[in-house]
């Protein structure tokens, strides 16, 4: 019990770290994933190739490996001045964007092709057709898988603890090394912190799903 009280500041810092990492990486993943999904259905072959390459590369790379590439590889290639936090957000966001892309694309595929044909027939460009007509209708189908992906992202963020980022995973490691605390109690509190975040995401997405269901 007193592991939480004794180290409340550390827990709080870790919790905030994980929330921050999750929120920013989610934002990056959602934006990038949607854009890449647009690339994958675009009439321009070069963009489609880029989209396929992006998804294949990132989806099939182990996340730890990707963290190494981003935190060690990018600075070696000349990207300097980024601290570990931002590099972790970059790695996590890009990794998840590949999965978000496929979830969004599956949503796009559920929108009847006639919707896009009608939009093109009134003179909308590809971007307008996608943004005004197809994506708003695709979102509804994509919401449940995207919710799952963001929950997975939350838990994946623990990998960042191995790369000098302060978040719940690093709190757990630090406390484990401080002999004297029951290791299972530490796990319990850390797990509870993750649950708070993941349940919030689930709730948010359920709300979104209901909201969009009414809008038809």
């Amino acid at each position: 019990m007193n592991v939480l009280v004794d180290n409340f500041a550390m827990f709080r810092e870790g919790f905030v770290g994980t929330v921050r990492l999750t929120a920013l990486a989610s934002l990056l993943a959602l934006v990038l994933g949607t854009i890449i999904a647009g690339f994958r259905v675009s009439p321009v072959p070069a963009l489609r190739v880029f989209g396929v390459t992006w998804v294949t590369l990132l989806r099939n790379t182990p996340l730890v490996l990707l963290f190494f590439v981003v935190t060690l590889g990018l600075p070696a290639l000349g990207l300097r001045g980024w601290d570990e936090d931002w590099l972790a957000i970059l790695a996590l966001g890009c990794y998840t964007s590949a999965f978000i892309c496929e979830a969004v694309r599956s949503g796009i595929n559920t929108v009847p092709v006639g919707q896009a044909e009608a939009a093109r027939s009134v003179g909308m460009t590809f971007t307008q057709t996608l943004g005004q007509i197809v994506l708003p209708q695709a979102v509804r189908t994509a919401i449940p898988p995207v919710g799952s992906l963001l929950i997975a992202l939350t838990k994946n963020s623990a990998i960042a603890s191995g790369f000098n980022v302060t978040e719940l995973g690093s709190v757990q490691k630090t406390l484990n090394m401080d002999a004297g605390y029951n290791i299972y109690v530490i796990f319990f509190w850390i797990a509870l912190c993750y649950l708070i975040i993941t349940f919030t995401i689930s709730g948010l997405f359920r709300l979104l799903e209901n909201r969009l269901a009414v809008a038809r």
Binding site: P112, A118, R120, S121, G123
Partner: peptide
Amino acid sequence: ARLRAEVGMVFQSFNLFAH
């Protein structure tokens, strides 16, 4: 796109924007 704006199209299945 500009040309299509000048050619009206009516489909068998209406294709009104559902949302």
